[in-house]
């Protein structure tokens, strides 16, 4: 009886919340339907793609891949100590709790926001893009690393401890062999998402293919913009394919 009442009440609450969300965001299917012709018009004006900007788009794509590679690579290393410090079963409580708090704080800011900060600090170009990728990826990888370390099989750790090994030796021989494949897999996964993130970095002046996309859209050169979009899609698909193939091998 009481359970049925709670159930009915929670349905009601969910409905009220949904109605409020729809109203407050101005979500309106009719407006979307009225806007559809404009989307079709936009797509029609993008056709056919302008092949003359292909070299520029490819260069931009290459730069985006470079930003993601360098940023992810540096972050993968920087995250190592942070990852171990934020693992409950390795770090003492006095280290673990502050480390977790700092990581959560910095991870709540997205790459794009970091890019705005770094563009202001070091100027336009790919370098602030790299810094933004490093800033976000370091903290997010550190959290994933930490969780991997917390999930290790305690058996081999006990066995290495029992030989009289030091704490560092226990980490090196008992923990790292277990987590290294996971770490690499997370790094590759982050690389995939960073390619996507780095695509929009150009919008705020942090280099790469996004810069070209934004420029052509501003110039109302939709045919050139569509070439850039297609190159972006191809770039993401190629990197995803390579990365997921590598990840499959790690397991």
């Amino acid at each position: 009886m009481a359970l049925a009442t709670i159930k009915r009440a929670s349905y009601f609450v969910a409905l009220v919340v949904l109605a409020w969300l729809v109203w407050d965001t101005g979500a309106d299917p009719v407006r979307l339907a009225r806007g559809l012709p404009w989307i079709f018009d936009f797509v029609r004006r993008m056709m056919p793609p302008d092949p003359s900007v292909l070299p520029a788009a490819l260069l931009g794509a290459l730069k985006t891949v470079e930003i993601a590679l360098l940023g992810t690579g540096v972050a993968a290393v920087l995250a190592l100590p942070l990852g171990f410090l934020s693992a409950r079963n390795v770090a003492p409580g006095a280290v673990f709790y502050p480390a977790r708090a700092v990581l959560n704080f910095f991870r709540s800011v997205d790459t794009l926001v970091y890019a705005l900060v770094f563009v202001a600090a070091v100027g336009l170009g790919p370098f602030p893009g790299v810094l933004a990728v490093v800033a976000y990826t370091t903290t997010s990888l550190a959290k994933l690393y930490g969780e991997a370390v917390e999930g290790v099989d305690p058996g081999p750790v006990d066995a290495i401890t029992a030989t009289g090994a030091t704490r560092l030796q226990v980490l090196r021989f008992g923990v790292i062999p277990q987590v290294l494949p996971l770490f690499l897999s997370y790094v590759l996964y982050r690389l995939e998402t960073n390619i996507r993130a780095a695509t929009v970095l150009g919008f705020v002046g942090a280099g790469g293919i996004g810069f070209y996309l934004q420029t052509y859209l501003r110039m109302i050169d939709y045919r050139a913009a569509s070439t850039v979009l297609l190159v972006t899609v191809a770039m993401v698909m190629v990197v995803d394919a390579i990365s997921s193939r590598l990840r499959d091998r790690l397991v």
Partner: peptide
């Protein structure tokens, strides 16, 4: 004090020899 466990507790991805070598870590 050497210790042998019910679940063997070897480092699965390491070679047999490297697992034995871990016994020397204290030295």
């Amino acid at each position: 004090i050497g210790m042998v466990f019910q679940q063997f507790n070897l480092v699965r991805r390491a070679s047999a020899l490297d697992n034995v070598l871990a016994g020397r870590l204290g030295y």
